[in-house]
Design a protein around this nucleic acid. Structure first.
Lengths: 231, 231
DNA sequence: TACAATCAACTTGTCTGATAAGAAGATGTC
DNA sequence: GACATCTTCTTATCAGACAAGTTGATTGTA
């Protein structure tokens, strides 16, 4: 074990406050504890509290108003960045999103079938299982999560970390429409079947089929989304 | 005119410090003035200075080290997304980088040949011309820039903004090795020839050839880099 | 001389206690 | 009821102290 990291008191106060907020006792817009309350509660000096509050203010977690108090800020649009940020700001047309994924993912599946080791396969199986379980209890939010996880792990199995991180970004900022796609009648069942085929191909080391199945999967999903949008 | 905005002293100190940094007397990594120096220079209390420094630290402009001082931070790599950030932090292996680009870019070139309008073609021609001019005067830095520009504009010509922004991210954070690739004897001339072929195919609306030429271009570049690394 | 321990002088980190100033409700006067 | 004042919250700033990390010079010793 290395030397323990000395952490500033003011930062521990920051953590403490963030924890309090995360615990849910305060809603955005609410007044938070005053500086003096925090001094008493956390038993630190006012300087430390003030520096902690400054930090949280810059981070956009609270808003401080002279004479009035400390207020909980609106939850910041998490994770701002050009690519991710752009995707979120512009609600990337779902067409564009699919066109890119239809280019990348079949090849990713191919490479995965060529290179995946036991551990990678196990991970993908687990994501598939989690998706299945979520589907059985009708938990759409969880399904979205594990669908993304499935695709990310396929990318990861290629051992190409650039590819993996790219897929991570793409699956974590999906365009509108994707969210509702799992509500399309039959889409969940098809997804399960298609994922299963992809998984089989990767497990069996069949690059050709892996690529083909991934293409099919994405093309089917796109087709269903298009159809549901036309109604 | 409305009521003037009361601005906290600590924020004015923040501005003052940022101005000092912007004026260029301090380079990234340099030690900045100490808290006491700032107290004397700006004639404010140490609390205000400390809060200002806290703000700048959270914003990533300075790094504070206990017992050592305040240091100018590396200019924040604007464009931070998990993907961009990861690329920069991890110096993506050049192999991974090329594998991904070999997947994406030929298809991008194909789509560009299908969809490019006159304006897009003109932009690509311009980037090609700028690369050529840079090559003639041996300006490698400019060549790298216009090479990236060429590839970005091809992606842009597809009208797929997701694809464009993705390519922007990739061409703006190139792995080690890329920079030196243009120093490989003959590489510049080959690049010019290959770019020219790609441009012709896009201009002529020949998707098949555009895809093929882009594949060739990237494969050749990779081959040369590999060869030069083995020496 | 070479080397190690000690010391002195910086630095940032934290605490205490004071005053200034904004905000808002209570209070008193008209 | 309308309005100015007062009180009591709040945050903002100040001043001065001491703790603790870092570094380089000084000193002591072999």
């Amino acid at each position: 074990m290395g030397p323990i990291k000395r952490v500033r008191l003011s930062e521990r106060v920051t953590d403490a406050i963030e924890t309090m907020i995360a615990e849910g006792a305060f809603a955005p817009g609410d007044r938070f504890l005053s500086e003096n309350d925090l001094v008493k509660k956390l038993e630190v000096s006012r300087s430390s509290v003030r520096e902690a509050v400054r930090i949280l203010e810059v981070r956009g977690r609270v808003i401080v108003k002279h004479g009035k108090g400390i207020f909980i800020a609106e939850p910041p649009d998490e994770d701002r960045d050009p690519f991710t940020g752009w995707l979120k700001d512009n609600k990337a047309p779902i067409f564009d999103h699919f066109e890119v994924r239809l280019i990348i993912e079949p090849k990713a599946a191919r490479r995965a079938a060529e290179k995946a080791d036991d551990e990678s396969v196990k991970g993908i199986e687990k994501a598939y299982g989690a998706f299945l379980a979520s589907a059985e209890r009708g938990d759409t939010a969880a399904m979205i999560r594990f669908d993304g996880e499935f695709h990310r792990l396929v990318a990861k199995a290629t051992k190409n970390r650039t590819l993996y991180h790219l897929m991570k970004t793409m699956t974590k900022s999906l365009p509108e429409g994707w969210i509702t796609s799992l509500h399309i009648p039959g889409r969940v069942e098809k997804t399960l079947g298609e994922h299963s085929s992809i998984l089989d191909a990767i497990r069996g080391g069949d690059p050709e089929r892996a690529e083909e199945m991934m293409t099919l999967h994405l093309a089917n999903a796109l087709k269903d989304i298009q159809a549901s949008m036309e109604r």
